[in-house]
Computed example of a mutant assay.
Amino acid sequence: MMNRKVIAYFFAFMALGMASAALGPTLPGLAEQTSTQLSSISFLFATRSLGFLTGAILAGRIYDRLPGHAILTGMLLMMGVALALVPFTSQLWLLTLLMLLAGVVESGIDVGGNTLLVWCFGEKVGPYMNSLHFFFGLGAFLSPIIIAQTMLATEGGIRLAYWVLAMMVLPAVLLFNRFPSPPIRARDTAVHGQHANRTLIVLVAAFMFLYVGAEVSYGGWIYTYAITLGLSTETAAAYLTSFFWGALTLGRLISIPLTAQLHPKTMLGGALAGCVLSMIVLLVWRISPAALWAGTIGLGLSMSVIFPTTLAWAEHTLSLSGQMTSYFFVGASLGAMTIPWLIGQLFESVGAVVTMLIIFITLLVAVLVFSLLIWQARLHQEAKAARLIT
């Protein structure tokens, strides 16, 4: 039963990845559908991010109070309905509301899947967590292919594409209805009036802010960076972006057996070292196309394990509740909104190199926060051990 339950989570995250990656490739079609310019409709990305942030704030409290599989099933069905309705929406304001709803439910699925998987496996969640996020990446990889093929089959229409993506929620929905939800976990009782727990939660959220901000910034700006500096053609820059996300997904697949053997702290330390080394290559040899490709692939592989392994490490150190996980996703959402925006504000005035400088500085600060995390976690464990002895 446990193996089949895990498959349900994997199907849910593959559907989530497909839905998350659908907006970009269909944006021109949605602009035509709503008789809107691309410059006007592009704010749907911000609307969806706002919905995701809202969902991250609310979802944890819900999972701490209600059966998780019922909530996940409802969120998946809502996501499927939202996707199915997109091709029928000819008014921009209605499409905006749908994207806001999509962001909320996608966040609920994301928070819920991560939280419930932790509750299923506890400190042994590492390999399962990396597998879960691999399936998210697989869905994000398959989504543009599905969209392209269905648009070709229907001579450019996006209706069939969104209907196919909407149907992808059904396998997970059917499987979740067959299995009971994991028992709801009470919040961990921290030492010294929960001060140690609150400090760790803030540090993990800050680490997520920095890491996700760096990841989204690189994936979002590497195309423009390469074109602006004349390091590649437009076609090659598109492939470069795909290779970054592909390396990130492949790295999660490769890391699955490693997470069963290595402590999350060791995995994170090695991944951060790989990120810093890749950024040094990108900065020192920034006029070399070969260094750009090598650094991009190295960064994708290094970043691949950080998000899922951070959650596994947090479970190893704290007894995670849904609300705690929500705080981490709030930090991640804010990072994804803030750091790419900062690069955009400075890109033209400072130059394209500001992209790599900001990402490099962000990762260096992430290393500092990670060091504080290790120190604070040791204090937390020592305090817990002293409490058990007394």
Score class of each variant (00 low, 15 high):
M2L: 15
A12K: 01
A12G: 03
A15G: 12
A19L: 00
A22S: 15
L23E: 09
L23Q: 10
G24I: 05
P25Y: 09
G29V: 07
G29A: 06
E32P: 00
T34Q: 07
S35P: 03
S40F: 12
L44G: 00
G51D: 04
G55M: 05
L58W: 08
D64R: 01
H69T: 08
H69W: 13
T73R: 14
T73F: 06
G74S: 09
M79G: 06
V86H: 06
F88S: 13
Q91H: 10
W93R: 11
T96A: 04
T96V: 09
L98H: 03
M99L: 12
M99Q: 12
L100E: 00
L100S: 01
I109K: 00
W119F: 07
W119M: 07
F121D: 01
G122Y: 03
G126E: 11
M129I: 00
M129F: 01
N130L: 08
N130P: 03
S131V: 01
F134M: 11
F135T: 04
G137M: 10
G139S: 07
I145E: 06
I147F: 06
I147Y: 04
L152G: 01
T154K: 03
G157A: 11
G157R: 05
A166I: 02
M167F: 15
M167N: 05
A172K: 04
V173K: 03
L174P: 05
R178M: 11
F179G: 10
F179Q: 13
F179K: 13
S181I: 07
A186P: 14
R187H: 06
A190D: 14
V191K: 02
G193T: 01
N197G: 01
L200V: 04
V204E: 07
F207N: 11
M208D: 06
V216F: 05
S217V: 00
G220K: 04
Y223K: 13
T224S: 15
T228P: 00
T228A: 12
L229M: 12
G230K: 10
E234W: 00
F243G: 07
T249S: 09
L250K: 06
G251M: 06
L253Q: 02
L253W: 06
A260D: 09
M267H: 00
L268A: 10
A271Q: 07
S278W: 01
M279N: 13
I280K: 04
I287L: 14
S288T: 07
W293F: 13
W293Y: 14
I297H: 02
G300K: 03
S304Q: 07
S304F: 08
F307Y: 13
T309Y: 01
T310Y: 03
T310A: 12
T317A: 05
Q323D: 10
Q323W: 00
F329N: 10
F329H: 06
V330C: 07
G331H: 00
A332P: 09
A332S: 15
A336F: 04
A336L: 04
M337C: 02
I339F: 00
G344D: 09
Q345F: 03
A352C: 02
V353P: 03
V353T: 14
M356I: 14
I359Y: 02
L364F: 12
A377T: 12
L379W: 10
L379M: 11
Q381D: 12
E382D: 12
K384S: 10
A386D: 14
I389R: 14
